[in-house]
Design a protein around this nucleic acid. Structure first.
Lengths: 259, 259
DNA sequence: AATTGTCGTTTCAATAATTGAAACACTGTT
DNA sequence: AACAGTGTTTCAATTATTGAAACGACAATT
C-alpha cells in the first residue's frame, strides 16, 4: 500500500527542496523573482526561503549578481550519503580499469523510481565525450543500463514497471512496443548483457552488464558507451567480457551490500 | 529573545538541516527517538520532519531497522553544486597524475570559515591509507593545505583569521604560538610551499602548494601526504616540484575561476 | 531630470501550519 | 502478563508562515 493517504508533511521543508530542485545544469543560478515566477510561489516566501538556505550554506549568493546557486553544504551532505562510501568509493577504481581497457566511457547506474539513476562515470580517454551527468535520471527502456536493470527485476516488479512507463521514441531505433521490449528483456536476462543501438540518442551505442552482490542479487549495472562510428559490432563480445570481469571485481569488493 | 540582528529565517528549514547535520560517518543511521534526544527537539516534531525528508528522498528509511540515513536526493544535489562541474571535474585527473607520480595520497582543499574544506582526494596506491574524507572540515593552522591557504590570504583577512582561531595542540609538534605561526606563514608565502611535520597527527607528514587561477589569485591548495616512515626529507623538494606542476596544470584548465 | 522598470527587501494583519504531551499500536524481552 | 523499547497519531494551544503592498536602490529609458 502506498502512502495515498497523505501524511502531515512539513510544508516549508517540502517547498525548500522544491526550490533546490530548480538549480540544475541548465540553470544553475536564480534570482528571487525569477525563481518565484518559475515555481509559482510568492516572491516574499521565496525570498525568505532562499535567505534561510543561504544562511545554512545550502545556497550561496553571488556578491555582484545577487543570484543564488547551490552551496558547499550540499556538497558536504552529498559526500556523506552512504552509497558513496559503501559503494561508489569501492567501484570507482573498477570503472577506471574498465574504461582504460575498453577505451570508452563507462557508467554505473541503478534503478530508482522506474528510471536509471547515474551513480558514477569514468570518461573515455578518447576525444568524443558523452553528456551524461552523475546524479541524474534517465529513462530505463532505451539505455543499456536501464534494459539490463529492467531485465533482472523480479517478474512482479517488472510487470508493474513496464505497465507504468511510457515508451517515447527518442530516435527511429527506440523500442516503442511493450511486447517487443518485454521479449527483449527476456533475451537480455538469458544472454546476461544488453545492447542499446542508438535507442536513446542517434549515433550512441552502449553495452551493459548486470552487477551482482554476493547474495546473487542484481544491485546495479555497468556499461560502456561510445559513438557508433568506432563501436564496431565485432568488438561487442570483447567489451562484454571486460565489463563482466569488472562486474565480478565489484561483486568481490562489496559483499552482500544492497542499495 | 531571538537574534535581533538576524533576518527572519524559516525555522522548519533550519531545523531540518540541523537534523541532517547529525548524519555523519560516525553515526550514519538514526531512529526517531534517539535523534530527538540528541538534538533536544521534540520527538513528534522530529518524527514528522524525518518523514517529510524521507518523502523527498533526502533521507531513506531502512525497511527492517526503521532507521533513517541520508538519501539519494542529497547525492543528486551534491553533484549539482557548481564547484563540482566548474572545478573538481577538471582537477580530479590532475590529482590522479600527481598521486601516481608521488605515490602518496593527494588532497585538494579550500579555505572556508577559517577551516580547510576538503574538495577532493586521490588515495595513495600504497598500502597505508589516510582517514581524510571529502566534504569535511579540518583545522587550518596544523595542516599543509591550511598553512598554504592561510599564508596566501591578503594581510587583513589573515590577521582576522589568526585572531579568530585557537591553536590547540594535536601533537607535540603542533604550532601553538601565534607569533611563530605568523612567522612561518611568511616563510611559506616566500618559498611557495608548506610542510606539515606531524602537526595534525603523529606520524603524518604532508607537503602543500598553492593553486593559482589565471588572475593570479590563490583559490585552492594541493598537497601530498603520507606516513613519516617513507616521507623522506630529501624527497620533499621533488614532491614540491611535482605538486607545482600539478597546480600549474589546474591553473591552465580553470581560467579565471573563483570559488 | 524625471520616468519607468527592474531588482531585492521589509512590513503587518490574516491565515495556516507547527507544536508537544499524552495516548496509541506494535515488537521483543523479562 | 507485565514491561520497556520502538514508531506513530491525536488535538487544542501556540506560533510561524503567508502575501499584497510598500519601500529603497539601482539602471535604463524618456
Amino acid at each position: 500500500m502506498k502512502d495515498s493517504n497523505a501524511k502531515s508533511l512539513n510544508t516549508s521543508i517540502t517547498k525548500a527542496f522544491h526550490l533546490l530542485d530548480h538549480f540544475n545544469s541548465i540553470k544553475p543560478e536564480w534570482g528571487v523573482r525569477e525563481l518565484a515566477k518559475e515555481t509559482g510561489a510568492n516572491k516574499s516566501t521565496t525570498y525568505r526561503m532562499l535567505a534561510t538556505l543561504e544562511s545554512l550554506g545550502v545556497l550561496r549568493k553571488d556578491q555582484t549578481s545577487e543570484k543564488y546557486s547551490l552551496g558547499l553544504k550540499l556538497f558536504e551532505l552529498g559526500n556523506r550519503v552512504p552509497v558513496k562510501h559503501a559503494f561508489i568509493n569501492h567501484t570507482h577504481p573498477v570503472l577506471q580499469l574498465v574504461a582504460a581497457e575498453i577505451t570508452e566511457t563507462v557508467h554505473l547506474g541503478i534503478l530508482k523510481d522506474q528510471q536509471v539513476f547515474m551513480l558514477d562515470k569514468v570518461e573515455s580517454p578518447k576525444g568524443l565525450k558523452l553528456n551524461s551527468v552523475i546524479g541524474t535520471f534517465s529513462p530505463a527502456y532505451c539505455s543499456g543500463l536501464g534494459k539490463v536493470l529492467l531485465a533482472h527485476l523480479d517478474p512482479l516488479q517488472q510487470k508493474k514497471t513496464l505497465h507504468a512507463i511510457a515508451l517515447k521514441a527518442n530516435t527511429e531505433f527506440t523500442i516503442t512496443k511493450k511486447a517487443k521490449l518485454k521479449k527483449q528483456l527476456e533475451q537480455i536476462k538469458n544472454q546476461a548483457y544488453a545492447i542499446d543501438r542508438q535507442e536513446l540518442e542517434l549515433g550512441l551505442i552502449c553495452v551493459a552488464v548486470p552487477v551482482y552482490n554476493q547474495d546473487d542479487h542484481v544491485i546495479a549495472a555497468l556499461s560502456a558507451a561510445g559513438p557508433a562510428i568506432r563501436f564496431k559490432e565485432e568488438k561487442i563480445e570483447e567489451y562484454v567480457a571486460i565489463l563482466q570481469k569488472g562486474a565480478n571485481m565489484i561483486r568481490q569488493k562489496i559483499g552482500s551490500l544492497t542499495l
